[in-house]
Write a protein that binds this DNA or RNA. Structure first.
Lengths: 193, 193
DNA sequence: GATAAAAATTAAGATATCTTAAGAAAGAAA
DNA sequence: TTTCTTTCTTAAGATATCTTAATTTTTATC
């Protein structure tokens, strides 16, 4: 009998590459399910990020503390997204950022060492992550373009339009942080649009 | 006898994955060498980007025209870097940006179709591009962080420190564009530092 | 339901950065 | 050298965004 969770990743994986059930089983056996309560940290600054997390259900944010101790959010992630601190995870160096659950969040943990092992055993997995990484890169380049081209007001409109899920599930002051403006200014913009 | 160019890519490829000479030969045979004179375009807006370019020697820039018709540079690339418009190349959709040679530039052209073919024949190449894409993603995330954290003045200092090659080979008004400020304001900052 | 805590709004003054326009300097061409 | 073109600098006024601080609204806790 196939578990609901295994079903979820099978569906997700097959969006990128067609895997046999046996392969899914092999990969799944290297994943550890874990639940983080709202506000708990999946990763803290200065620690090495040991996992790439696949979110089964929930919302998390990636952020750092600026020189004034203010939180600056660089990424959100929800159901069926991968989240990790890329630089820390890939290079196994201390993280400059935090990952924190915004809602109660259930994830599958994929450790760096298991991932390396799986790459060697399953070239398809390497292809999947090549494709996912390309997609992330494109999303990131596009985000930079949006921030480069648009004034704050337009940025907010684009955000609401493109990621309506987030504007529902995430408090407004966090959206302001992600959009690189103060909550006061966002409030101002919302009034006048 | 092995050509100088083949030697150059062999050295570059082996930084990521160890290839046999026969593999390098096979891959090399799918690459087309081409030279672009200063100011000519490798890619124009609204055309589909058919190639990923490996720069053997030269400097190019990636830029788009904003709503006022001003050029906004999003990336530079020099010797031993890959350059393409990611979104256009990967999804084979019309490009929103231009690629232009700043100096006379010699490249190796890798077409999308050849690349797909090579991925199937040489899993090592897929690994190499998985690693390169990860590196690009990290570089891009880091760039976003720098722009998020720093005021213009600091951004310029970081740029000069991190990429001294560019501040030599690229005119100042292009650096201003890349740093997301007007040339007038950059000039102002340089005076006061 | 009452109280406390968290989040959102408002407004005034401060600052970073842009716009425009003109002139100076440097590099390329003749 | 002279001329033309490209690049860089200067300065004044305009605008977007931030800071601070107080107030209101919403959400969570007892």
């Amino acid at each position: 009998m196939i578990s609901k969770v295994k079903e979820q990743i099978k569906t997700y994986f097959n969006r990128y590459v067609e895997f046999e059930d046996a392969e899914i089983d092999a990969i799944y056996s290297k994943l550890e399910e874990k639940t983080f309560q709202k506000k708990t940290f999946l990763l803290k600054e200065n620690t090495i990020c040991k996992h790439n997390y696949f979110i089964l259900k929930g919302v998390v944010r990636l952020f750092y503390l600026d020189s004034n101790g203010h939180e600056k959010i660089t990424q959100f992630a929800i159901d069926n997204w991968w989240i990790t601190h890329m630089e820390s995870f890939i290079n196994q160096t201390p993280s400059t950022q935090y990952i924190q659950a915004i809602e109660d969040t259930t994830v599958l943990c994929l450790s760096k060492s298991n991932l390396e092992m799986l790459y060697h055993e399953h070239p398809k997995l390497e292809r999947m992550f090549r494709l996912i990484t390309e997609k992330m890169l494109i999303a990131n380049l596009r985000k930079s373009d949006v921030f480069l081209q648009m004034k704050s007001k337009e940025r907010y409109n684009v955000f609401v339009e493109m990621l309506p899920d987030f504007s529902q599930r995430v408090p407004q002051y966090m959206i302001a942080s992600y959009l690189e403006m103060t909550p006061e200014y966002l409030s101002e913009l919302r009034k006048h649009r």
